[in-house]
Amino acid sequence: MAKINFHLVTPERTLLNKELVSLSCPTDLGQITILPNHVPLVANLVPGELVAKSAAGEEHIHVAGGFIQVNPKGQVIVLADAAEHDYEIDLKGAEEAVQRAKKALTEVRASSEEYAKVTASLERSLTKLHVAKRHARRRSTGLPSEGVFKE
């Protein structure tokens, strides 16, 4: 059976590089799922949860936006701005980031550029928190997060 040759890279590291059965990810136009032999595709990713299904099981990864490319060779490449496994997310840190962003949102209404920046950062933190909470019971050991998000 055909498999997806999958790469997930961020500017800081390579997060995942394995064979997958299917991949779901959040794009500009909604959640899409990619199966083997997908047509070549380029799409924008939005902050959200990426589910990578392989023979061994599912992996849940939070991405903070980026791009997905399906190339004609059957490779799927995700260029993420930042990404973390669900068990790597620092729940407390993410909650604090949400609080900070909400607070900043009430203060910076004046300048639109700043407003957009804070909104984007809030969205990233919220989706991150969402991913972490949904899979909280799977977290056996609280691995420290690497603090990918900087406000």
Binding site: T27, D28, P40, L41, V42, A43, N44, F67, P72
Partner: peptide, 27 residues
């Protein structure tokens, strides 16, 4: 390859490239 090799864009190409090009230059 030129025929069977067309990438599908979601949303339209200009929107994707608008985001993609600066990112690539930065990287």
């Amino acid at each position: 390859k030129k025929y069977g090799y067309n990438y599908q864009f979601e949303p339209e190409p200009t929107k994707v490239l608008e985001h993609l090009l600066p990112r690539i230059i930065e990287s």
